[in-house]
Amino acid sequence: MTARLESLKRLESVLENFLGRAVELEINNLNTVSRIDSLDEIARLSLKGRLVNQQLGNWFARNRDYLDSDRLKETEVETIANLLSEIKKGLDSSDPESRKLADEIERWKEKGVVPKRKLILKMKSPAGGMSITEKFADYLGREKVLLEQEEYSQEHLLSILDDILKSAEAKEDHIYIHLAGSIIYFLRMNGYKVSPYVKRLKQIEKERLGIAYAE
């Protein structure tokens, strides 16, 4: 029995060493992707309309050296840029702390760490450059991406609407208002009672866009 135990312990040691080396090979990759993973978590929270100032500030503080280094690969840069771009859309420009974080994102962009990259290239030029039809198509495309989030895959459209309305309340980006309106209209067409949601949306429009309706 002792010989068997010894053999098993040797095997255990061999397997642990093997796994240790295999993981070590992945470790740089792991560190990088862990950073991206934590930024991804922040972006997800932001998409839900949560305040992410503190998490984002901490993320920048923890990853300053990494962002300053030349070690970033093009794909990493692109992923980080896209996530920061998503997060930035959700920052409230009326809040000084959020403005500071938005400036921080801009600063990385200017330094080329979040380079003159796809973050900018992917976005069409604002207002002047897009026709109203292109703007509408752009909204529809972005709305589709929002709705295809993993967390919505099992949700009823009413729950999604509730979440989108929360985002519309919290975020500067007007896309949430448009998407909420679109979902409300679709639900109404399908016989759902939508008046509480309409009321919420009207209130948000009033606060965010300055549009008021006669009661």
Partner: peptide, 22 residues
């Protein structure tokens, strides 16, 4: 966004690094 599979893989690697094999 990272998909759930990639996230799980990352967490697996982190756990293996800490020898938390289970």
């Amino acid at each position: 966004m990272l998909n759930d599979g990639v996230k799980a893989y990352l967490r697996a690697l982190a756990a293996l690094k800490d020898k938390d094999y289970r």
